[in-house]
């Protein structure tokens, strides 16, 4: 009997393709079900008021009593924007500068130390970031332990290593020949770094920054002992502030019906916000890349 190798190879190839496709489907199930669940339970509470009003007092419907106030998650949306904005303003300069140093001055001890430290910090559980900031402020500045400032600092602890690592990777993709081209033209090293290397890596740098922003926007743990949460809107950087993940954490485990449905609505809004940020930035980055490559 003649053994047909080519037929066996084809069969093997088809089987594996089907298996890989099935695995891809399985991987999509958790993602799809999370979005489905949030949409089903959070969807009905959405309204303009929901986005602007502050959370109500706790309440569960009782027969014969007036219905519970629905309220909204205005303070949480506002707080997340403030916290993440402030944390980004802190982390991006530090993380980018660290990455530039690690890549452009590699071989020096400090450069290696930066890469290694950023690697280790990326793996640190996010609650540790909260505890770290909490402890520091309890000892040195106890008045503002629970504040927008400490919340943003705790988020920065999460963001800095991510910005550093992703920017490092981005800068490393810039071919060495471009650095040489610039230096050989008599362009000083600092200018070469900022105006040639960083600019060339900008789409990837922005992607990295966005990654860290989305991670920070979804973190509750670092905020538990810092931003603390508040039903009120922004009260100054030295006072507690709300955030979407914090509201979800606090309200979802409460026994009150109106808070629980608020938590589901907040979950849906958080997913939508991150989705919008992701799509928008992808569009911007793609446009930048296209303009560069002249496509």
């Amino acid at each position: 009997m003649k053994f047909d190798r080519s037929a066996r190879r084809k069969l093997w190839s088809h089987t594996m393709t089907v298996l890989a496709g099935l695995c891809a489907l399985v991987a999509l199930i958790p993602l799809a079900s999370v979005i489905y669940q949030a949409a089903v339970l959070g969807g009905p509470v959405l309204s303009v008021d929901f986005l602007t009003a502050n959370p109500p007092s706790p309440c569960s419907p009782v027969v014969g009593q007036p219905p519970c106030a629905v309220g909204g998650i205005g303070s949480a949306i506002q707080g997340t924007l403030i916290l993440v904005g402030l944390a980004t303003a802190i982390s991006v300069p530090i993380g980018l500068a660290a990455a530039v140093f690690a890549v452009e001055y590699r071989g020096r001890f400090l450069g290696l130390a930066i890469s290694f430290t950023a690697d280790v910090l990326t793996g640190v559980p996010s609650i540790i970031a909260g505890v770290f900031i909490y402890t520091y402020f309890v000892i040195y500045y106890p008045v503002i332990v629970f504040s927008a400032l400490t919340g943003a600092l705790a988020l920065s602890v999460i963001m800095i290593p991510i910005v550093t690592r992703t920017c490092e990777e981005a800068l490393r993709t810039v071919p060495h020949s471009l650095r040489e081209a610039a230096l050989a033209l008599g362009i000083p090293k600092w200018r070469t770094t900022l105006q040639i290397v960083v600019v060339t890596a900008l789409p990837a740098v922005l992607t990295g920054i966005l990654l860290s922003v989305m991670r920070a926007a979804g973190e509750a743990a670092p905020l538990l002992f810092t931003a603390f949460g508040s039903r009120l809107g922004f009260q100054g950087f030295n006072n507690p502030i709300n955030a979407l993940p914090l509201l979800i954490y606090n309200f979802a485990e409460s026994p009150y019906k109106n808070w629980i449905s608020l938590a589901w609505g907040a979950a849906l809004i958080l997913i939508i916000l991150i989705l919008i940020a992701s799509v928008l930035s992808r569009l911007v980055v793609n446009r930048m890349v296209r303009r560069m490559r002249g496509g």
């Binding site: 020949s177 081209a181 230096l183 050989a184 033209l185 008599g186 490559r293």
Partner: peptide, 16 residues
């Protein structure tokens, strides 16, 4: 380097 210019083996224009 401003007085002594250089052209490299592979073309290396600034891509951006």
């Amino acid at each position: 380097r401003r007085r002594v210019g250089m052209v490299f083996q592979k073309p290396n224009p600034f891509v951006t």
